[in-house]
Design a protein around this nucleic acid. Structure first.
Length: 427
DNA sequence: GTGTGCCACGACTAATTA
DNA sequence: TAATTAGTCGTGGCACAC
């Protein structure tokens, strides 16, 4: 009963929205949305399957699967003489990792830069690679794909029609690549890249991909990245340790979950936000000292002085106004956390992410959304309001209960929580 | 040679269950 | 409440097209 093999391959077709949960265990009738889950189940519950003969000749399923992996064995421990030993000729200068191809090194650079150019048009989650976004859309938004086409080359990061903002950041000359090629320290741009790429603005009307959104997650990530999960919510604003100085093994750990914000982090962030000046004020302040952004401290340790302006200017999608917005990095994290479902482009959205993100009315807007985002019908970004709306006001502001439920940490934390929102959003 | 996308794996986290 | 289960994401290898 070597059905696993079939599933492992055939069930990979996740492109079809309706194909979710297609991983069926024929032994226990369980279903899994992901191949990984299914495989784990096989190992955990039906480990005997590993002894199943492989139709292709491999003695066991696992071994057979391994044969399909066909990865070059580790350079040091390869006992398989039949496979030509490949040399990892290309190394990362920021860590000891070595790769088979140069482009792999370039792609690897994202690990160090933290750059996430690809924004999910549905949940604002960001990814460092396009294929990650594609995968995310397929897995997390497959059901909504009927409403919004899955990530296609034309709908990637910013699937919106706006010409100025839709571009997947890629269009911008990637400092990553250039820096790698030039062997320059990536810190030089790493802190800028968050502002530089046009990205992200899935919602053109939202204003620019503005720094608000951009740096936002990135900065948050940079912060969270350096914090132990347990105490992160206590220190997420404190200057982090320079990531570049971490051994790669640690680096990977830090990097991990950069988009998956621990609940505590979100909570703490909101708390800090609340105790901080109103966003717009904070933005002003930050504009005077961009280095104050936690993320900058994280990534900008070795930051070179120059570059920001010209990096920014490299993006045709960023106007001078937007440039000013890029100074609002401090606000970014909040927006980045917001699990909003980006609405379709609408001219009503006006311009300027700041305006959109922090409408004056937010201070008075009732947290009607607390009962569910579904109630926030009209405004495209009504769901942006709550966080800011509760920002400072008084001692009680720290109380999470003041935040609309939808903005409470749980839902904001990770993509895994997003589906809960979608249900509300879709209503 | 490069860009892109698919795949697999490990790790983390949330949800579920005992 | 601890253990288990399941979903998601980050990362690297690689095939393919240009």
């Amino acid at each position: 009963m070597f059905h696993q093999q079939d599933h492992l391959k055939s069930q990979l077709q996740e492109s079809h929205p309706a194909s979710r949960q297609l991983f069926h265990c024929q032994e226990c009738r369980k279903q899994y949305n992901t191949q990984l889950g299914y495989r784990r189940h096989l190992v955990a519950a039906h480990s005997a399957a590993s002894g199943l003969p492989c139709p292709e000749g491999s003695p066991s399923l696992l071994e057979h699967l391994g044969s399909h992996i066909d990865r070059p064995p580790p350079s040091e421990g390869n006992s398989n003489t039949t496979v030509p030993v490949r040399e990892r000729k290309y190394s990362c200068e920021r860590c000891d990792r070595r790769f088979y191809t140069r482009k792999d090194v370039r792609r690897h650079a994202v690990v160090h830069t933290g750059r996430r150019d690809f924004l999910c048009p549905r949940c604002a989650q960001r990814f460092g690679r396009r294929d990650h976004l594609t995968r995310h859309l397929k897995k997390s938004h497959a059901q909504e794909s009927g409403l919004m086409p899955p990530c296609t080359p034309s709908s990637t990061p910013v699937a919106t029609p706006s010409p100025a903002t839709q571009c997947p950041v890629k269009e911008e000359p990637s400092p990553v690549a250039s820096d790698i090629g030039s062997k320059e320290p990536m810190e030089t741009f790493s802190r800028d890249m968050y502002n530089s790429y046009p990205m992200a603005n899935p919602v053109p009307g939202m204003g620019h991909p503005h720094g608000l959104m951009q740096g936002s997650l990135s900065s948050s990530m940079g912060v969270a990245r350096h914090m132990p999960p347990q105490s992160s919510h206590h220190h997420h604003l404190q200057p982090p340790v320079a990531p570049q100085q971490q051994p790669y093994s640690n680096m990977a750990r830090y990097q991990h979950g950069s988009t998956s914000y621990p609940r505590a982090d979100v909570d703490s962030f909101l708390l800090d936000l609340q105790s901080a000046p109103p966003p717009h004020l904070s933005a002003v302040n930050s504009s005077t000292s961009t280095s104050a952004s936690p993320q900058r401290e994280v990534q900008g340790e070795g930051v070179g002085a120059g570059g920001e302006p010209h990096l920014l200017s490299r993006s045709p999608a960023i106007s001078s106004t937007e440039l000013s917005c890029t100074t609002n990095m401090d606000l970014g994290p909040l927006l980045g956390f917001l699990p909003f479902s980006l609405p379709p482009y609408s001219p009503h959205m006006g311009m300027g992410g700041l305006v959109m993100s922090y409408p004056p009315t937010t201070t008075t807007s009732p947290p009607s959304s607390s009962s569910g985002l579904s109630s926030q019908a009209p405004g495209p970004f009504t769901f942006f309001q709550p966080p800011q709306a509760h920002v400072p006001q008084g001692p009680g502001a720290h109380n999470h209960s003041q935040l609309p439920q939808a903005y409470s940490s749980p839902a904001m934390s990770t993509s895994s929580s997003l589906p809960h929102y979608y249900q509300a959003f879709q209503q």
